[in-house]
């Protein structure tokens, strides 16, 4: 269970998250929506352990472990996966090589034997098929020369291979055309399971037409100002974020 209590985060001295609380149980899909600058990306970056964010108050635990105390790789070993809004290119490092190194690091940590080459190849081929990715993608450099849509698809492909228990997807829908959006959504849907929680950070309601959330939260001014079910997203689409700010104030 992800439990965030009164989380306060500053960037370069400016407070972005101002006492955010959120509970996510295994198996649930939560959507966090909000206007630009509301702190959506800050939330996912802080949970994943990116540098440059100062936690000034509050807690965030995952299954009782203090996430904020761990270096990024140990959060990954604990099951946290961040789908990046802007996945970085790493020239010369092939996609599969990174994945195999990541998977084995996690397995070593869990006391499991490393996966052998054949088993690994079988796994990635299967997952690539799920994401309708051409196998040539596997041997290309990580995100190297990928289009925006290919990068996002690659993120979900990595998610499928690494099988995290908490997936934070940061604006995964941005920059996707409708076909790519459907592929990404069906990938996510197929990965839903009772052990796995999803937090979808998004500006638009569009993605939620394909991935049905259990809860929708509105983040504004560094706090969650409203929580509801999927109908809240539709309401937001119609009325815009401005209408929501008033009751929160």
């Amino acid at each position: 269970m992800l439990e965030i209590r009164d989380l306060r985060v500053s960037v370069a001295g400016k407070e972005i998250l101002k006492g955010l609380s959120l509970t996510v149980r295994p198996g649930e899909v939560h959507a966090i929506m909000g206007p630009n600058g509301s702190g959506k990306s800050t939330l996912s970056h802080v949970l994943a352990g990116r540098d440059g964010y100062e936690v000034t108050g509050g807690t965030a635990t995952w299954h009782g472990r203090d996430l904020l105390a761990l270096p990024p790789e140990e959060r990954a070993w604990a099951g946290v996966f961040l789908g990046f809004q802007y996945p970085v290119e790493i020239p010369g490092v092939s996609n599969v090589y990174l994945l195999r190194a990541a998977l084995n690091a996690k397995r070593r940590h869990a006391g499991l034997p490393e996966i052998d080459a054949i088993g690994f190849l079988k796994l990635v081929r299967e997952k690539a098929k799920l994401m309708q990715m051409d196998e040539s993608f596997l041997n290309r450099g990580v995100n190297e020369g990928f289009s925006g849509g290919e990068k996002k698809r690659n993120e979900i492909f990595q998610l499928a291979v690494l099988e995290p228990t908490l997936a934070l997807l940061d604006e995964t829908d941005s920059g996707l055309d409708i076909d790519a959006l459907k592929v990404v959504a069906s990938g996510v849907n197929s990965l839903r399971s009772p052990e796995r929680a999803f937090v979808l950070v998004t500006h638009y309601q569009r993605l939620l037409g394909y991935i049905e959330p259990d809860f929708v939260h509105v983040l504004a001014g560094g706090r969650i100002v409203r929580t509801g079910d999927k109908s809240l997203a539709t309401e937001l689409e119609a009325s815009g974020y401005d209408a929501l700010r008033a009751p929160a104030a």
């Binding site: 990116r50 790789e73 959060r75 996966f81 990046f84 970085v88 020239p91 490092v93 940590h109 990580v142």
Partner: peptide, 27 residues
Amino acid sequence: DDQLFYCRQRGLKAEDAVNLIVNGFCK
């Protein structure tokens, strides 16, 4: 920093992430 964080988020230790990136640089 972006490349390092990306690799670490996927579960690589910082040292391994540096190795990986340097190796890719030389490939």
